[in-house]
């Protein structure tokens, strides 16, 4: 069975969408801690979308910040879903209020994680999303 330990995530190809360089670097390191080695990065929604649109098979998991200048995480998510891409999508949010959660869910987000979060929380969320997408069964 997959994902029983660090090795579980070895097949994951994660696209990190985050406008802040430090935060992006931190996410990269955190994902590395979880044993994820295939990591792609984009610093805004537009860049990220042109990447997944042209090379969708390169990515099977998206980790995206909600609050970005230009295109927000939710806008990016809608674009991804509009081209019929069912890629697991974990939204990073600074907010935990009901309104944002509802908005994210209605836009087709698979899960969200609230800042600040630990590596454990990130791991738990990734596992939940993979379960939801049947990638663990």
């Amino acid at each position: 069975m997959a994902y029983a330990g660090k090795a579980d995530f070895k097949d994951l190809k994660v696209l990190v969408v985050e406008d802040q360089n430090e935060a992006r670097a931190m996410l990269r390191n955190m994902l590395g801690e979880l044993g994820i080695t295939q990591i792609f990065e984009a610093s805004d929604g537009r860049e990220a979308f042109s990447f997944v649109d042209s090379a969708f098979d390169l990515v099977n998991f998206i980790l995206c910040d909600w609050n970005m200048p230009g295109m927000t995480g939710v806008e990016f998510l809608r674009q991804v879903r509009s081209v019929n891409m069912d890629t697991p999508f974990l939204m990073i949010t600074g907010r935990g209020d009901m309104g944002s959660v509802t908005e994210a869910k209605s836009s087709g987000v698979t899960g969200y994680i609230k800042k600040p979060f630990s590596a454990s929380q990130l791991e738990a969320k990734i596992r939940i999303i993979l379960q939801r997408h049947g990638m663990d069964a």
Binding site: Q20, E22, A23, A25, M26, L27, N29, M30, N67, G94, R95, K115, P116, F117, S118
Partner: peptide, 14 residues
């Protein structure tokens, strides 16, 4: 708090 959380995540993570 929202913006500060971002900064804290970075400090904490690194």
């Amino acid at each position: 708090a929202h913006d500060f959380n971002n900064i804290l995540s970075i400090i904490d993570g690194f």
